Amino acid sequence: MPAVKPDLETADAVAKPILIRAGVALIFGLTTVFVQEPSTLWMKVAFALYLVFSGSAMWEYLRREPVPVAMRSPLSMAAAAWMLGTIVLLFLSAPQAIGLTVAAALAVGGVAELVAWFGHRRAFLPARDQLITGLAGLGSGVALALGSHLNPHGQLGIVGGGAIIIGTLLAVSGVGMALDVRKARNLEADRAPGRVD
């Protein structure tokens, strides 16, 4: 029983930022599906919001105590790449330049997540999610770089597909952790001395 406790503590600590990032990714991904004729300004703002809120969720994740110190360096690089991409977007207006900037931010972030996964997948269970999120980010970045000549809807669709993959994976992971913690707390409350049913 004592061996399970750290896992529950870790789940309790990281579930919220994981779910926040999942929500950001899913909201962005769904807007790319339902907005059929986005303008360049819409594309720019959507990309900027996706990057900045993903970066913010990652920073929040990194602040949690159970996250290994050595894992924070590559994931900080991912968050920094997304934040820097957001800043650069403020000065751009050409669709292709916007696409290439976002592609670079996503690709760097994806590689950084893969580095975090490779180094910590065995010692830190939540790091295993970084394999899929890293591949999705890197794949979206490469695909967007190749498709940066496309119109705003096409570019948003490329990144939106990756975002939906990321959001779905992290939602399943985060909800699973939250439910495990709730179940453990309920069980502990049921076993508490003096409880009267």
Rank of each mutant, 00 (worst) to 15 (best):
M1T: 00
V4Q: 00
K5N: 00
P6A: 09
D7N: 03
A13N: 03
A15M: 14
K16F: 07
F28N: 05
G29P: 03
G29V: 01
F34W: 09
V35F: 06
E37P: 01
P38L: 01
W42F: 15
W42Y: 15
K44A: 03
K44M: 01
V45N: 06
A46C: 12
A48P: 04
L49V: 13
Y50I: 00
L51E: 07
L51H: 09
S54T: 02
A57F: 10
A57K: 01
V69R: 15
V69G: 12
M71W: 11
R72W: 08
S73R: 15
S73P: 00
L75F: 09
A78T: 00
A80G: 05
A81F: 10
G85W: 00
T86K: 14
I87K: 02
L90D: 01
L92T: 04
A94P: 13
A94M: 12
A97G: 00
I98A: 10
A105N: 08
A107W: 10
V108L: 10
G109E: 11
G110Y: 01
A112H: 05
V115Y: 05
W117I: 06
H120W: 15
H120E: 12
R122C: 07
L131I: 07
I132M: 14
T133C: 10
T133L: 12
T133N: 13
G134L: 09
L138G: 01
G139Q: 03
S140T: 13
L144I: 08
S148A: 15
P152R: 09
Q155M: 15
L156T: 10
L156V: 13
G160C: 08
T168G: 12
A171Y: 09
V172M: 11
S173V: 01
G174P: 08
G174H: 09
G174F: 07
G176Q: 07
V181D: 14
R182I: 07
K183F: 04
K183Y: 02
K183N: 04
L187D: 04
D190V: 06
G194T: 04
R195H: 03
V196W: 04
D197V: 13
